[in-house]
Write a protein that binds this DNA or RNA. Structure first.
Lengths: 145, 145
DNA sequence: TATAGATAAAGGTCAATGATAGTCAAAGGA
DNA sequence: TCCTTTGACTATCATTGACCTTTATCTATA
């Protein structure tokens, strides 16, 4: 996919948040716009379309001297983990039935999926997924680059 | 039979998908139309008549600047597999909601899980799983021997 | 010294424009 | 008749810039 300016700014912000501890960064709107050689309102647009609560982010700001834009990634709320775990239980149960997978492999799969999706950070997860692409690709002939 | 424009565009798209690594391509509607010297809506027509879910394809698109049309071939599978796929769809949908995973990562995860559980042989699957144990173990400190 | 008003330094809003893709109905052709 | 082809019109997403609002700081004056 050809990346738009909006896409690139979005990525950039996410990298900054990933690097931060506290899942939070503060930027100067004008400065970020300068970095990407665009108008400041472009940044506002990116925030409005890619960093909403629905996307899992909260943005706050202050105008005037010493102003800033603060972007915080909110961690998924507690109850959600149990739903994912239930999904995984279900998936593995069906795997056992349909694909004749034994209990020990089933246990392993359960553990792997739970760890992958509920314990790893987004960055770690992406690293693991990209290696998984390579590994699986070996068998199904995907071209990885 | 004399090939219609629609036939030729269909063929062309299928060649592109065959060459692609992940059974998926992204095109610019206008550009493809240009290639075949026809109106853009002709491309829409081809997609609507030859690349439906029934034919084994999923199409997605985005309008506006840097827009695209994405065409994915989904491999058809026997009865019980559809239950696993439904499980995977559900799991990924919940992941998107709860863990704020974007569409592109979601697609990757779906593809990986489907391949891992419905396309690989038991032996291949076990090899991949053992690699996965190692990879994830790196991050969570599992002792692998 | 206290403070009101001026000025500077942020960020916000919104409408216009550009860049894509989608819809639909009419016309064409085998 | 049924499928294909075309094009005018529509919908959506991205980008820009003029104008607005808020906050901090400076300055003149009682």
């Amino acid at each position: 996919m050809r990346k738009s300016l909006t896409d690139r700014i979005e990525e950039y912000i996410k990298v900054l948040i990933n690097r931060s501890d506290q899942q939070q960064i503060e930027i100067q709107r004008a400065e970020l716009a300068e970095t990407f050689s665009c108008v400041p309102s472009q940044v506002t647009y990116v925030l409005a379309t890619r960093f909403t609560v629905k996307h899992g982010y909260i943005t706050e700001s202050k105008r005037g001297g010493k102003g800033f834009v603060r972007i915080t990634r909110v961690t998924p709320h507690a109850g959600s983990d149990s739903r994912l775990k239930a999904d995984i239980q279900e998936l593995v149960a069906h795997l056992k039935e349909d694909r004749h997978i034994g209990e020990s492999e089933a246990r392993l799969i359960r553990q792997l999926l739970i760890t992958l999706f509920t314990e790893l950070s987004p960055e770690q997860r992406q690293l693991v997924l990209s290696r998984l692409v390579k590994d699986i690709g070996l068998y199904v002939g995907w071209q990885t680059d």
